[in-house]
């Protein structure tokens, strides 16, 4: 069941969203986003050979953080702002756990807002994609 603005608190955790994109999923993301950088699907691409693997699109992780927030909001509000930094590479068939928590909630000009700290974690528990979102609750 979707959360409400009334029941969230600072520190309220967002339910974890676990991704484990394989090459096929990355190809679907390439088609859906239009980003056909071979670094994300071609093991023979020079940059992939240099790294030792193809890597997950940073923007896939960004979009997955968007999905995390969307699932949590359950269409009771809208994302006003969402950002992330790409601090570490993620690789195909490895866990990418999207999670986060409420950093702040407040009212401003009649709007009910919440700021979220969000991030992805790899299998070693390292935050490879830390970010932030601001959401406005509309119902």
């Amino acid at each position: 069941m979707a959360i409400t603005w009334e029941e969230i608190r600072e520190g309220t955790a967002l339910p974890r969203l676990e991704k484990r994109p394989g090459v096929t999923q990355l190809v679907k993301y390439a088609a859906g986003s239009g980003d056909f950088n071979p670094l994300h699907h071609d093991y023979g691409f020079p940059q992939a050979k240099q790294i030792g693997s193809i890597i997950v699109h940073g923007r896939f992780k960004y979009a997955a953080l968007g999905e995390l927030v969307s699932n949590w909001l359950g269409h009771r509000g809208r994302i006003r702002k969402i950002s992330c930094e790409f601090r570490g590479m993620d690789f195909p068939d490895q866990p990418i756990v999207c999670t986060g928590k409420v950093a702040r909630k407040w009212e401003e000009s009649g709007e009910r807002l919440a700021q979220l700290t969000i991030w992805t974690e790899n299998g070693d528990g390292k935050q490879t994609t830390p970010g932030e979102a601001i959401v406005v609750f509309t119902r």
Binding site: Q47, H57, G58, R59, Y62, R78, I79, R80, K81, I82, S83, C84, E85, F86
Partner: peptide
């Protein structure tokens, strides 16, 4: 020659 994505921020002002 090398290119990596550093980060991104989207600010929505409408749907």
């Amino acid at each position: 020659p090398g290119l990596l994505d550093g980060g991104v921020e989207t600010e929505y002002r409408g749907d």
